[in-house]
Every structure is written in C-alpha cells, then in structure tokens.
C-alpha cells in the first residue's frame, strides 16, 4: 500500500510543473478570455463591466451587430467550406499517394521526402508563394497560373482566382486557391500517416484475403481501408483543428478579400482586437472559435480516453 502511495506521489510531482503551467497559460487565459467576452471592454483601458452575452448577440444578430454580424456569418460559412474541402483534399490525395508509394516502387524515399517537404515550411511562406502563383494579372498581362494557362492556349480557363467575388450559394469560389495552398502543405502529413498505417498492416492479412479470392480492389476496400480508420480519425482531428483556427496562411496569402470572400474568424478577431481595440468583441470571437475546435477535439479525447480505460 505504502509503495503504491509513494508511486502515486512521484507521478503527481512529475506532472505538477506542467499542471501549473497549463493551469495558468491555457485554462487560466481561457477563463480570462471568457470573462472579457462578457464585459464592456472597448478601447485600451480594461473595463470589466458585466454585459452578459451582448458581444455574442452582436456577432449573431444582424439587427444588433450590423456589419460585424454580416462578416461573422460569412466567416463561419468560409470556415465550414474551407474545413470540409481541405480535409477531403488532404485525406483523399494523402491516401492515394500513400497507396501509390506502398507499391514498393523504386526511389520511394525520394518521393516520400518530396511530398513531405511542404510541411516543413511555415504557413506564412506558403501563403506568400501561392499568392504569387494565383495572382491573376490582367487580360493583357496575365501573371502566375493565368500566364501559364495563356502559354498553353487555355485562355478560357484564366480566372480571377482569390480576388473573384463569385459564389455558389454561400460558398465563395475565391476559397479554392486557398484550399489548394493549404492542401499542398498538409497532404504530405496525411500521406506519411497513411503510409505508416499501411506498413502496419501484416502482409499475411492481404495474402489471406487474396487466397480467399478477393480482387486487389476488394483487398483495399474490405481489408485495408477499415484498418486505416483510426488513422483517418487522427488525421481529421489534427487537420481539423488547424483549419478551424487558420490565420497565418490566409492573412499572408489573400487577407480578408473583397466582400470578405476569404475572411475567417481568426482574421476578424485579430483586426477587431488589435486594430479596432474592441477587446470584448475580439474575446467573444475567440470563444466561438474555441467552441468550434472543442466540438471536434472533445469527442476525440473522450473516445481515446475510453479506449485507454478499456485497455
């Protein structure tokens, strides 16, 4: 008994520093941000007068918030479409690349490194480079991708890219170049995860399936895909929380765009807080962002915790 108690104390002491740091710098500041979001703080001087959910009402009701509510609604739609398409692209292309690399081709290491390289860049670098690539230019003097299309005689495909204000319903087409840039950067990550997953599947299983008469497509659909499911889940969680909070890529690549076509809550929060000095309003946006991320991450944590307990 005393041995166990000692062990417990050791574990507690080892964890203590991180508990304290996390308590202050993560949960403490979350609590403080919540308090600010319920206050009247507008301007440089803190003002903690309680106003309830007024700052949230401004974000969600057009009658009270005016442009802020219009902008926030656009931001939420943009985040939704960006996240869904970004995840689909990363998972789809990443899995495809992993399956191709898993065919024991020659020079696999080279390809793996090439696909993984973009991940080592900062989103800021990616943003600047892809801004050059997708900068549209004019009809008489096209730039970037448009110049390339012009050289190939595909003028009809030239487009205004991220400066376009066209939309299909609430989906702004200007988001497409941003999604391409983000997926270019993060696809290597999903590829690496899937590749590890594929290598973790025992060859005997595939062999057994083949012996039972499964075609190669069936082997992938019935055996390999189901076994990769936990990897898909982890990838979705990691990429999902990146895309819900995306800031730096869009800030450097397109900014909020004309008519907020590429605006996201992160940029709105930054401008509101640090350019407009509306601290309470900015805190309210942060809290909404936190809730969005929590919706994705908490179920994941709960499942993985349950997994641990069962084991």
């Amino acid at each position: 008994m005393s041995h166990a108690r000692k062990e417990r104390w050791t574990a507690f002491l080892i964890l203590l520093p991180s508990i304290i740091l996390l308590g202050i710098f993560v949960y403490g500041f979350i609590a403080w941000t919540m308090r600010v979001s319920l206050s009247k703080w507008d301007g440089i001087t803190p003002d903690y007068t309680w106003v309830g959910f007024e700052n949230f009402h401004r974000l969600f009701s057009k009658d009270i918030g005016g442009v802020a509510a219009i902008r926030f609604r656009i931001d939420l739609w943009n985040t939704f479409f960006f996240t869904v398409l970004f995840l689909l692209a990363c998972v789809g292309v990443g899995m495809l690349l992993a399956i191709l690399l898993d065919q024991r081709i020659r020079g696999e290491g080279v390809f793996r490194t090439v696909y993984l390289f973009p991940m080592s860049l900062s989103f800021v670098v990616t943003g600047v480079v892809w801004q050059w690539i997708f900068s549209p230019g004019t009809a008489s003097r096209p730039r970037g991708v448009n110049a390339l299309l012009g050289m190939m005689g595909l003028e009809q495909l030239q487009w205004r890219w991220f400066t376009s204000t066209e939309s299909i319903g609430p989906f702004h087409l200007a988001l497409i170049p941003v999604i391409v840039a983000a997926a270019w950067q993060m696809t290597g990550y999903t590829m690496a995860m899937y590749l590890a997953g594929l290598r973790g599947i025992p060859e005997e299983l595939r062999e057994a399936a083949r012996v039972d008469g499964a075609t190669e497509t069936q082997v992938y659909r019935r055996i390999i895909m189901p076994m990769l499911r936990p990897i898909t889940l982890s990838a979705l969680i990691v990429l999902g929380h990146i895309s819900l909070k995306i800031f730096d890529l869009i800030y450097t690549m397109t900014g909020k765009g004309p008519g907020f076509v590429t605006d996201v809550p992160g940029i709105f929060m930054f401008e509101t807080t640090f350019q407009g000095n509306h601290y309470a309003q900015g805190a309210a946006i942060s809290i909404v962002m936190l809730l969005m991320v929590a919706l994705v991450v908490v179920p994941y944590l709960v499942t993985s915790m349950r997994g641990e307990v069962e084991r």
């Binding site: 507008d42 301007g43 442009v67 802020a68 219009i70 902008r71 204000t165 909020k256 765009g257 004309p258 008519g259 907020f260 076509v261 401008e271 509101t272 350019q275 407009g276 000095n277 509306h278």
Partner: peptide, 15 residues
C-alpha cells in the same frame, strides 16, 4: 475603432 467599422463597410462595398 471607427476606422475598422468603416473598413468592414468598404470591404463589402467594393465587392
């Protein structure tokens, strides 16, 4: 604060 409000209005207007 006012300028950010005008900026938001202008961002919508130019589109």
């Amino acid at each position: 604060g006012w300028v950010t409000g005008i900026s938001d209005a202008m961002t919508l207007f130019v589109a």
